[in-house]
Amino acid sequence: MTKTERASYVLHRLGQLYPDPPIPLDHTDAYTLLVAVLLSAQCTDVRVNLITPKLWSLANTPEAMAKIPVEEIEKIVKPCGLGPQKAKAIQKLSQILVDQYGGQVPQDIDALEQLPGVGHKTAQVVMAQSFGVPSFPVDTHIHRLAQRWKLTEGKNVLQTERDLKRLFPISSWNKLHLQIIFYGREHCSARGCDGTVCEICTTLFPERKKALKTKKA
């Protein structure tokens, strides 16, 4: 198969497996999604979903969160890892949203990336999942699978993002990035598949015999 043919198969098969993929992080609006994605750095979505109800009971708007001492936020988010940094970022970005954006999450990726604790991937997740703007956030699952399926050279997540955006139609981006994540977790995990086990890997590369080493992001 050519790279284009592989991409076409991936798009078709994932559409069959996950026709309507849910957003993994529980949230009620753009603000709670932003905070949840921030907390998910180096933490599982399952753990974040266990923690955020406690956080929302404390404060679930920028106005309320900006008034909460960092120490109180940290007590709740500590199980997500990087507690001090994440707590400070949540409190500070909440204050910025109040001061500069009227308590609203800006629908602008550059503005989002300027917020404390918000990187490129987090900003893209919010743009895609809260505002419906075509985006292709690349996490470790997507980075790994894109390499296994030889859709990118995969030196870093930004290169992977650029390559995938060129391969797939823009109308598919917001759903496809979730579909790849779910497939990676369920069938093509870091330990569960080495490029020679799961359905898509074996379909795309039936002659592949050796485990494929993937480059870390």
Rank of each mutant, 00 (worst) to 15 (best):
R13S: 07
K155R: 14
I181K: 04
V46D: 14
S40P: 02
T140L: 09
L33T: 15
S172D: 14
K75P: 02
A190R: 10
E113G: 07
L58N: 11
L58E: 07
I142K: 09
D110H: 12
Y101T: 04
S8C: 09
G83N: 03
Q91R: 15
T4D: 09
N60V: 00
Y18T: 03
K121M: 01
V37Y: 01
Q129I: 02
K67Q: 12
S189N: 05
V118F: 06
Q91H: 15
L38T: 13
I96Y: 03
I109F: 00
K54N: 11
L25W: 03
D99E: 13
R166P: 01
G103D: 12
N60H: 14
V133P: 06
Q95E: 12
V157N: 04
V98G: 03
C198L: 03
T152C: 12
E72A: 09
T52H: 06
L176G: 09
T4F: 05
D26W: 06
T214L: 00
Q16S: 14
K150C: 12
L34M: 12
D194L: 10
A36V: 01
I109A: 13
L167R: 13
L33M: 11
I200C: 06
E199P: 03
T122L: 12
L11I: 02
L14C: 05
A190C: 04
K209A: 05
L176A: 09
S8W: 00
I142H: 08
E199M: 12
T202Y: 01
K75A: 11
R13D: 01
D139Y: 10
D20W: 10
L93F: 11
V133T: 07
D108T: 05
H143C: 11
E72D: 11
E207Q: 15
P19M: 10
D26M: 06
V118C: 03
E207D: 14
F131V: 00
F136K: 08
L167T: 07
T44C: 04
T32I: 07
Q104W: 05
P106Y: 08
P169F: 08
I96L: 07
L17E: 02
